[in-house]
């Protein structure tokens, strides 16, 4: 019933295209696939299921979309099954579908039409009738009249300040001259404020993001958005200068510490924030531990063996560092990723 009201508002405000996706006038492009690959994918979707098409085109992406590990964080929301939800930056629907299986209705929003096409195909494959999709730039989203119980922003906040077409494999760590004048922190705050306005009074926001002080960043591992070491924790201006020098564009994928995440969410209006540490990361979590609980029961999560079953020096060092930092020193502020459940 409630979902009908939201669907009604969507059809009033946006145009439903021939593929069954609501379209706004603010389409963009952010994808692991190039535009050419996405054209091929759309062609494959005419005759194959979403999974088969992805397997044919990019088998290494199947896990990103379908792995059952991905949705483990949703249980932190303690859902009762009747909720209406928005998944911001839903992409191929790793969490959208998982949320639809648990709740009454999900609106998936993403700026990349071809990602939504794949998701739409997946929704049909799985006979889910409680998902609607909207193609829109998250920075230009209007505040909806209908308020939802749950909003999801998983791996989204850090990309909000980005501009222009992004084909990830041609962008991550690659030179790509670009000027971005706006303050990333303000844009991220505005996005969270918009999400806050779209949530009901007792609603919750689920935020998944890397930790600015992830221990790996101090060991020389590149930032997961630009592949330059140290920029996540360096002062923002210095990081930007380094990024301009190496990649031709400022560093805008701002990450936050646990404290910083809490401060930002409270600034956006949320009254209470529950913080969780994720190991080895928030995308494929093996352990999610309440930040307040600490690391007394911690067991290392970095697998010593790679996909070929061999122990590599990099993995070995990562495991040793993880054991030392979290099991022995218990430096929880260095945890790799953060999940925050923000209560309105």
């Amino acid at each position: 019933m409630m979902s009908n009201i939201l669907a009604g508002e969507l059809s009033r405000r946006f145009k439903l295209d021939e593929s069954g996706i609501y379209a706004s006038d603010s389409e963009g492009y952010w994808s692991n696939l190039s535009k050419e690959e996405n054209v091929l994918l759309l062609r494959l979707l005419k005759t194959l299921s979403a999974k088969e098409a992805l397997l044919r085109l990019k088998p290494d992406l199947v896990d990103i979309v379908y792995s059952p590990m991905r949705d483990a964080g949703l249980e932190l929301l303690e859902l009762n099954g009747d909720e209406t939800c928005i998944d911001y930056g839903c992409m191929w629907g790793a969490l959208t579908v998982a949320l639809a299986r648990r709740t009454a209705f999900v609106l998936g929003i993403d700026q990349t039409k071809s990602s939504l096409n794949l998701l739409k195909s997946r929704v049909k494959d799985e006979n889910l009738n409680n998902i609607e999709l909207l193609c829109a730039d998250l920075r230009k989203l209007p505040v909806l009249d209908f308020k939802v119980d749950i909003a999801i922003a998983n791996g989204v906040l850090e990309w909000i300040p980005e501009r222009g077409l992004i084909e990830l494999k041609n962008y991550f760590g690659k030179y790509n001259k670009k000027e971005i004048q706006n303050n990333p922190g303000i844009e991220q705050l505005e996005f969270l404020q918009n999400a806050y306005k779209n949530i009901k009074p007792a609603g919750k926001l689920y935020l998944g993001i890397e930790n600015r002080y992830d221990f790996k960043m101090f060991l020389g591992v590149g930032d997961p958005h630009v592949n330059i070491p140290c920029v996540s924790f360096f002062p923002r201006r210095l990081s930007s200068a380094i990024s301009v020098l190496l990649l031709g564009r400022p560093y805008v994928n701002w990450l936050y510490s646990f404290k910083g995440t809490e401060v930002l969410l409270k600034k956006a209006g949320f009254s209470k924030v529950d913080l969780y540490m994720c190991f080895p990361d928030y995308r494929f979590p093996e352990r999610i531990i309440p930040y307040n609980k600490g690391l007394d029961d911690f067991t290392p999560t970095i697998n010593l063996k790679n996909s070929a079953g061999k122990i590599t020096p990099k993995r070995f060092l990562g495991r040793v560092a993880e054991t030392l930092i979290f099991k022995i020193i218990k430096a929880k502020f260095l945890s790799p990723s953060i999940i925050a459940i923000a209560h309105k």
């Binding site: 059952p68 590990m69 483990a72 964080g73 932190l76 979590p285 093996e286 309440p290 307040n292």
Partner: peptide
Amino acid sequence: MIELIRNCSHGNQ
């Protein structure tokens, strides 16, 4: 509060 203690270990889902 809830804590994830195991996720799809040993090939289960």
